[in-house]
Simulated assay, not measured.
Amino acid sequence: MNDKQLMACIAQAADDLGLDSWALGRRAGLPEELVSSVLSGQTQAAVETLVALAAALGLEVQLVPVQPARRIVGSVPTIVDQAVERVAPELIVHVDDDGVPRDRTPAAGPPYSKLGPQSEVGPVASPHSKNTGRKA
Rank of each mutant, 00 (worst) to 15 (best):
N2K: 12
D3S: 10
K4V: 12
K4P: 00
Q5W: 03
L6K: 07
M7V: 05
M7D: 03
M7A: 09
M7T: 09
A8M: 08
A11M: 05
Q12V: 04
Q12I: 09
D16C: 01
D16N: 14
L17G: 03
D20S: 02
S21M: 09
W22S: 11
W22I: 13
R26S: 06
R26P: 05
R27Q: 09
A28I: 02
A28Y: 02
G29S: 05
G29H: 08
L30Q: 04
L30K: 02
E32C: 06
E33P: 01
V35H: 08
L39M: 03
S40R: 14
G41H: 02
Q42L: 10
Q42Y: 07
Q44N: 11
Q44S: 09
A45C: 02
A45S: 07
A46M: 11
A46I: 09
A46D: 06
V47W: 04
V47H: 05
V47R: 09
E48L: 08
E48G: 08
T49F: 00
L50Q: 01
L50G: 06
L50N: 01
A56E: 02
L57T: 01
E60Q: 14
V61Q: 12
Q62C: 11
Q62L: 11
L63Y: 13
V64F: 04
V66T: 15
P68A: 15
P68Y: 10
A69F: 13
G74K: 01
S75P: 03
P77C: 00
P77T: 04
I79C: 06
V80C: 03
V80D: 12
D81P: 00
Q82Y: 01
A83N: 01
A83T: 07
A83E: 06
E85Y: 07
E85M: 05
R86E: 11
R86M: 12
P89T: 04
P89M: 07
E90S: 15
E90I: 02
L91N: 04
I92H: 11
D96W: 13
D96I: 14
D97C: 11
V100P: 01
V100L: 07
R104E: 13
T105H: 08
A108Q: 09
G109I: 13
Y112N: 13
S113N: 14
S113F: 11
L115M: 12
L115E: 13
Q118F: 13
Q118E: 08
V121P: 00
G122W: 06
G122D: 08
G122Q: 10
V124W: 14
V124R: 12
A125N: 04
P127Q: 05
H128G: 09
S129P: 06
K130N: 13
T132C: 00
G133K: 03
R134M: 05
